[in-house]
Simulated assay, not measured.
Amino acid sequence: MKKEFRVKKNKEIQDIFKNGKSFANRQFVVYALKKPGQAHFRIALSVSKKLGNAVTRNQIKRYLRQVFLELEEDVYNDYDYVIIARKPAADMGFHEIKGSVSHVLKLARVLKKAKTSNTSQQ
């Protein structure tokens, strides 16, 4: 994930927590804060030590980055996101994580409705 796609500063992350809206399912919590005029969305990932060892935590983070890479066209660009992984995420594979994150982003109403490519293939 490119540097400009990441939220790294603690002050910015705290701003997302305080002023953003939160949406959750069993596996993930997503905080979304609208940033008008931003060229591209930015994300911050949080995976607690309670979820497992470093290998497990890094795998979850890799999966989350890949999900956002694949959903890049479908996610609104003028938002900052903080994604917090919950305990059930440790036992999930990539496709399960992608489905779960997509579900939370739909709840947050930050996914574009451009899913017409699926219906045109039928």
Rank of each mutant, 00 (worst) to 15 (best):
K2G: 09
K2C: 05
E4P: 09
F5W: 03
R6A: 05
V7C: 07
K8D: 01
K8I: 14
K8Y: 00
K9Q: 10
K9I: 15
K9H: 00
N10H: 09
I13L: 04
I13S: 04
I13Q: 02
Q14R: 08
I16E: 01
K18Y: 03
K18E: 13
K18P: 14
N19E: 03
G20R: 08
S22L: 14
A24F: 04
A24R: 01
N25P: 12
N25A: 12
N25Q: 09
N25I: 15
R26A: 15
Q27A: 15
F28S: 07
F28M: 09
F28I: 10
V29W: 05
Y31K: 11
A32M: 01
A32Y: 00
K34H: 06
K34D: 03
K35G: 13
P36R: 04
Q38A: 15
Q38H: 07
A39M: 08
A39D: 12
A39L: 09
H40N: 13
F41M: 09
F41K: 00
F41H: 04
R42A: 05
I43Q: 00
I43A: 00
L45V: 03
S46T: 10
S46F: 01
K49C: 06
K49P: 11
L51W: 03
G52Q: 05
N53W: 04
N53Y: 06
A54I: 12
V55A: 01
V55S: 01
V55Q: 00
N58L: 12
Q59C: 10
Q59M: 12
Q59G: 08
I60Y: 02
I60L: 06
R62T: 01
R62P: 10
L64P: 03
Q66K: 06
V67E: 02
F68I: 14
E70H: 08
E70Q: 11
E72H: 09
V75M: 00
N77A: 11
D78W: 09
D78S: 13
Y79P: 10
Y79N: 12
D80C: 14
Y81C: 07
Y81I: 15
V82R: 02
V82G: 04
I84A: 04
A85V: 14
K87V: 15
K87A: 15
P88A: 15
P88Y: 05
A90M: 08
D91E: 15
M92A: 15
M92Q: 14
H95F: 14
I97A: 09
I97M: 13
I97F: 02
K98P: 14
G99Y: 07
G99S: 13
G99D: 07
V101F: 00
V104R: 03
K106V: 11
A108W: 01
R109K: 11
R109S: 07
R109I: 06
V110D: 01
V110L: 05
L111F: 06
K113D: 09
K113Y: 07
A114T: 04
A114S: 10
A114R: 02
K115L: 13
T116D: 04
N118Y: 05
T119H: 04
Q122G: 07
Q122N: 07
Q122A: 05
Q122V: 11
